[in-house]
Design a protein around this nucleic acid. Sequence first.
DNA 1: AGATGTTATGTAACAAGTTACATGTTTTTA
DNA 2: TAAAAACATGTAACTTGTTACATAACATCT
Lengths: 322, 322
Amino acid sequence: MATIKDVAKKAHVSVATVSRVINQKGYVNEETRKLVLQAIEELNYVPNELARSLFQKKSHIIAVVMPHLTSYYFSDLLEVIEDETINANYRLMICNSKDDPEKETKYLKIFDQYNVDGIILISNTNRIDDYLRLKIPMIEIDHNLSDDIPSITSNNFLGGKLAAEKLVNSGCKRILHFRGPSGLVTVQDRTSGFQSILKEKGIENYTYDLAFLSPDPDDIENKIFNHLDVDGIFCDSDVIAMLAIQSLKRANKRIPEDVQVVGFDNIQLASMLEPKITTIEQSTDAIGKTVVKTIMKLINGENLDYFHQTIDVKLIERATTK
Amino acid sequence: MATIKDVAKKAHVSVATVSRVINQKGYVNEETRKLVLQAIEELNYVPNELARSLFQKKSHIIAVVMPHLTSYYFSDLLEVIEDETINANYRLMICNSKDDPEKETKYLKIFDQYNVDGIILISNTNRIDDYLRLKIPMIEIDHNLSDDIPSITSNNFLGGKLAAEKLVNSGCKRILHFRGPSGLVTVQDRTSGFQSILKEKGIENYTYDLAFLSPDPDDIENKIFNHLDVDGIFCDSDVIAMLAIQSLKRANKRIPEDVQVVGFDNIQLASMLEPKITTIEQSTDAIGKTVVKTIMKLINGENLDYFHQTIDVKLIERATTK
DNA sequence: AGATGTTATGTAACAAGTTACATGTTTTTA
DNA sequence: TAAAAACATGTAACTTGTTACATAACATCT
């Protein structure tokens, strides 16, 4: 591996001059610049980022802390974040906390050790103070764990509202809500938005909590058979919706004639399998882009226009609603 | 941030002694060791990994190059790889090539710049020579792009064979194979294994290529309606199987009575939705673990027992076969 | 007692860059 | 034409750790 010294020697200049050429900083004669660039070319030289980072106390590394890597929504999000991060000339270190305190401790140490420039926190954590202590620019997605950390979240309240409005306007009178874990703000907001409409219209409804990662099909089926009188179901994920739909079929319910269903997320399969699911789309694209843009601002010490940002969601009408 | 100098000063020793304590290398008096550890504790000191890496020309970073982040199989794989990597005390840098030559160029440069210790290549690439030029320990998953790079792959030949055997033994006479892109060795191997049995038994069959990432439902439906005489379908992914099943239903075929279906991967949904899919399970767990174990061997300069390793697959019988 | 080995610690070079500062040249300005 | 400003380049200090080497105290062996 060629170093800056090799380049300097080859171009008959000092390392300072080479550095100036690389970083386009300070005065360099055009002739000299060309010589240096040629030497770089010939030696296939790439500056060592570790040395650079060491001096600048900036690693150009962004860490994303995920709760897991295997859900549709988070994978989509990660895909966007990775792309935007690279476009911004940063690299992505992936941290899968998996609710494992030991792993989280390891990662908290690593953030320090590598002078990580920014942290994107997608995972939930009860060690938010440890994160804050790091004094690293940070941003949360789908959480609101601290007033000192800016956040980006889908407008879940709106999502709940849109779902409720759709069901109510299509004539539903008794509604079931299969929601995610009630400890999550996203779930709470959805519920509030959903309830706000139902209360207003005085519509009867039931709520059940489910796991997001692997909702129990039997659990869903039991609830549905216990509520065969419902004519509308709002599910906090499309996977839950798919499971609900199949239980409804087994209960000989026609969709959407007897029961209407609204999902959440708009994953790919929601529009591939029959019946195509009416759902609330979260724009992972907008979230990802906003997240990276915002963390870059934080890293560059710029001011934020909004500390807590909200990304609008959209109702996608398909075949599970009238 | 405290540095090694701060620790040295606090413990009234030299930085060399502190370094010796940290790395448990060389002679250190027990008394001194305690003093140093205490200073480290009090200052909340963590050694700067960038400085360490710079000196050692080892970053403790592993790069995974993915073709995308959004498929079930790759996400599962990534989850295992991340876990194993951290356990081995390395960090994971994520690189999503997305078939974008520009991104790949960027990443190839980054691997050099960061003294990345190892590369796990999941993505396909036509720039394998550029990778080899890096002289970084490397391993491929599901590919065989170069004889100079060790590889880990599911036993796809066996997978194809198991699927064929199951269908044939359950009485299928005319079989459809919805396979992935025929350019992939994995797909080729599956096809060979599959065909080996069908040829042997003289069973009529048709093959169609589909995209893995987002197979076209209409395409699948057309093919099925053009082959209403088939009584068995082998799909190269569970998602394809799900799509095939729904088209079969629309064609008023009973599953498994009229047509039997075998999928591939064993994704979570395969056992959640009805009919539960008979499928060939790839052990992402075994693959991920083997990959990380192998790349660690390469990094440590150890010899490999097998240059090209194969992980057995398993037939999971469910409701789509007799 | 002198030689040799073990233990303990410090000094300084080194990894590969960046940049403050010094120095000298050239150009512009008054 | 002298002073000031702009241009060009190099030397060396600096980022934070690791380690070769030097030094010295003490133990063990002949």
